[in-house]
């Protein structure tokens, strides 16, 4: 009898141990909800952990499908006037160390305006023609074919984007930013330690970094503002007739590679130990008589534009493509 009791006890323990992870996984609630929404709907999406894909469609409804976070207590899916809220509800406190975050696919009218936030949640957003505001802390952002006022921010996650049009602002602290085939009025990129890599036809660009490197492959630029502390900055571009370039760096190098003729008054100044390399014309770089610092002032073409470059100890390199 005692042996039987021990056996039963062992079997029960084994069953509980085996079932525990499965129970946690099984606790992910499945959702499939749909609501008719107006075309000018403003959508707020909140998801703490997991992966959320948000897709713009030609339909007039909003649909959420997938699984909720294993710790979620439910999901709010409500329309009030033209405001739609999609929120994965989580307990106010808790240790959310499990591996099963939300896995959601959200379909919305492509004209919807989006306000998206998460903590460790990754987001994929594609095919929208209105404003998008997206903030996540450690999640990655993938944005594709968006048009409007776009503000995408991640703290430690990477931002990858393609075909963004309008007023684009991409911001990261330690994550990298990679933006391809952008168009529109202006674009602004900011990173602290992550690298910035951009290929765009936007003509008004600003990029700044503390220690990350900045690489810009640009077309016809009317206004370019670059700032860096220790990261290197390299830009390939053509400057418009009255275009303006301003680049300031502390110890990072600044390299400009011009395609086509340049019409601008150029002033480059290195205060500390860096040097200036001028391969754009024959103007001589003036070295400081104390051996520290260098200066270049020259007129390129008709001199209609302005180029002002300053570094403390980084090199300034000017080349033609």
């Amino acid at each position: 009898m005692k042996k039987l009791m021990n056996l039963l006890f062992s079997v029960s323990v084994a069953a509980v141990l085996y079932a525990a992870p499965t129970a946690a996984f099984a606790a992910q609630e499945s959702v499939d909800k749909r609501l008719d929404v107006p075309a000018n709907v403003v959508v707020t999406i909140e998801n703490m952990r997991g992966e959320v894909e948000i897709i713009g469609t030609e339909e007039t409804y909003a649909q959420v499908r997938g699984k909720l976070d294993e710790y979620a207590t439910g999901m709010t899916f409500e329309l009030a006037d033209n405001n739609l809220t999609i929120r994965v509800e989580m307990p106010a406190r808790g240790n959310f160390s499990g591996n099963h975050g939300s896995e959601l696919e959200i379909h919305l009218p492509s004209s919807a305006e989006l306000n998206i936030s998460g903590v460790s949640s990754d987001f994929v957003v594609r095919d929208f023609s209105s404003d998008v505001q997206l903030n996540t802390v450690s999640g990655d952002i993938h944005a594709h074919s968006l048009r409007g006022k776009l503000n995408l921010t991640s703290v430690s996650g990477d931002i990858q984007s393609e075909k963004l049009t309008g007023r684009v602002t991409l911001k990261s602290v330690s994550g990298d930013i990679d933006d391809r085939d952008g168009a529109g009025s202006n674009a602004s990129y900011s990173s602290t330690s992550g690298d910035i890599d951009v290929r765009t036809s936007v003509s008004d660009i600003s990029a700044e970094s503390v220690s990350g490197d900045v690489m810009l492959d640009l077309q016809s630029v009317s206004n370019l503002r670059l700032k860096s502390v220790s990261g290197d900055v390299k830009a390939t571009l053509a400057l418009t007739r009255n275009g303006r370039i301003s680049a300031n760096s502390v110890s990072g190098d600044v390299e400009l590679l011009f395609s086509g003729a340049v019409d601008a008054n150029l002033e480059a100044n290195v205060s500390g130990g860096g040097s200036i390399v001028n391969d754009v014309n024959d103007a001589r770089v003036e070295e400081s008589k104390w051996g520290v610092g260098a200066n270049l002032e020259t007129r390129l073409g008709s001199g209609s534009g302005t180029i002002e470059l300053t570094t403390m100890s980084g090199d300034i390199i000017l080349r033609k493509k």
Binding site: K227, S246, N248, V250, G272, M312
Partner: peptide, 24 residues
Amino acid sequence: SIHEVSEQLIEEPNNRQLWQLLQW
């Protein structure tokens, strides 16, 4: 960098770009 740029501005008080860099 703030310290470094401030020191340099004492040497080059007319460098507008350096003042902008400091503000940034």
